[in-house]
Every structure is written in C-alpha cells, then in structure tokens.
Design a protein around this nucleic acid. Sequence first.
DNA 1: TTGACATATTCCCATATGGGTATGTATTCT
DNA 2: AGAATACATACCCATATGGGAATATGTCAA
Lengths: 116, 116
Amino acid sequence: MPRASTTSDVFNAIAESRRRDILNFLALQERSVGEIVASLQLEQPSVSKHLRVLRDVGAVQTRREGRQMLYRVNAEAIRPLHEWTSTFERFWKHQLHRVKERAEEKSAAAVKDEPK
Amino acid sequence: MPRASTTSDVFNAIAESRRRDILNFLALQERSVGEIVASLQLEQPSVSKHLRVLRDVGAVQTRREGRQMLYRVNAEAIRPLHEWTSTFERFWKHQLHRVKERAEEKSAAAVKDEPK
DNA sequence: TTGACATATTCCCATATGGGTATGTATTCT
DNA sequence: AGAATACATACCCATATGGGAATATGTCAA
C-alpha cells in the first residue's frame, strides 16, 4: 500500500512544500492562478494541480472573475492541523524542565535498573 | 518527480495517519515498540519502519532499556508545524467576520466589474 | 555457546506521486 | 464566428511509498 492520497486529508495535502508555499502566498491575500505561478518557480499546469489538491481538501476556495480564477485560503481546513500540534504544545511550554531532563540523559549513560 | 520523501521533514512524516497515531500514543508517555505494536493494528516491522521515519525527522527519540527500545516524543520537532499553522490562526479568530463574508459571497452571484 | 526475546532491515509489489508537454475548456475581445 | 487569454486536465514516467513475509541484529538468560 502506497502513501495515503494527498487528497485524503489536509495533513497529506500540506506535506508538499510547494503547496505550503502556495498557502503562504495566499495567506496575504486572494490571488489568481497567474499570480501564483509567477510567485513560484513552476509551470502553470503543476500549479493548477497543486491548487486542485488544496481545493479537494478544502484548504482553498475559489471564485471566478472573468477569465481569472481567484484562490483564497480557507483557514478552517487548516485548523485541525493546528489543533493536533497543540497536543504537544505542553512539552515545549515546559522547556526549562525538558532541558534539564536532556542534560541528565546525556550525562547518565542510560544505566537503568529494572527492565520491566 | 514523486512526492517528497517522508524523511525530508516533519510535514511529510506526519502525513501518514499511522504515524500520527503513534505520536498520539507516545504523547501520553514513553513506550516500547512492543507496546506501540499492541496499541495499533499493525505488524511489528511496519511499526518499526514508521518509527524509523519519525526518528529520522527528529519527531521521536529513543533509549534502549535491555532488549527493549523505548520511544518518546520530541515535541521540538513538531513545533515548526504548530508555528506554521499559527500563521492562519488569525483567520479563524475572526470567525464572525468570515461567516459574514461567506454569506455575502453566496448571495451575491459574483457579478464583479473590473477584471484587472 | 545456545536459545529466546525484542527490534530492525531487506525484499517484493501495487499504487499514488509531481513535473513536463500537449491538449481541452471557459471567457472575453474584435 | 474566430482569436487570444487564463486555467484545467490528460498522459507519460521515474521515483518513493507502506504493507507483509522473511531475515538480520542486538541483548539477556541458562
């Protein structure tokens, strides 16, 4: 079984750095495909395909304006990602504590006693 | 060019839901491979391979204890992800505003005037 | 040393990928 | 209608994937 499809969920969709680039660009403001192509170092068809993926997972929404197709970010789709990472937030919030732990690990050459 | 390698960065590593499952499990506490295998519906080799990926991107760290290999989350590696998603936080923080926008878009059948 | 236990790695394979090139479709202009 | 513009889709292909099965490696116990 290969990796999950990029359209299966936002996690897979944003795995591609080009797509993150696109979202970063769109974070500033709504943009046409042409503008996105210009901002990236990529052929138009490739950009369209990335946009398709982002659209399929709901990360972007579109609006037609004449011949142009305007894309904008739909942050709601990215929210689950933010919330999932928040699960681990508590770890780095206690950095001092962690740093201390690390130091201990490094010095003590892992000589444990009771392998359950 | 195929999709970026799973070991290229955390974004790719966590694209796989099984790996997120593992991280969720490890978020509670340090665990041995055996425990992880038991918690997932997966063969041991597959789990080891997922752990390898997570380790390569720094998402987990290990410690040997006798025959067991104990894995624990390294939240620092996940932090970039959290921060990247934070970029879009402002969007859903102004939800009321967004909802209003949406309503307008839906009713107004996109009759724009000046296609630049 | 031999054996058992816990993990890791290798091999095989069907499948999804993303890039480029070519082509299709929608919309506007003349 | 015909041409030009702006995107989208189809097709081809080298490559990375994850799962399972088999095998290798590492650690401890007798």
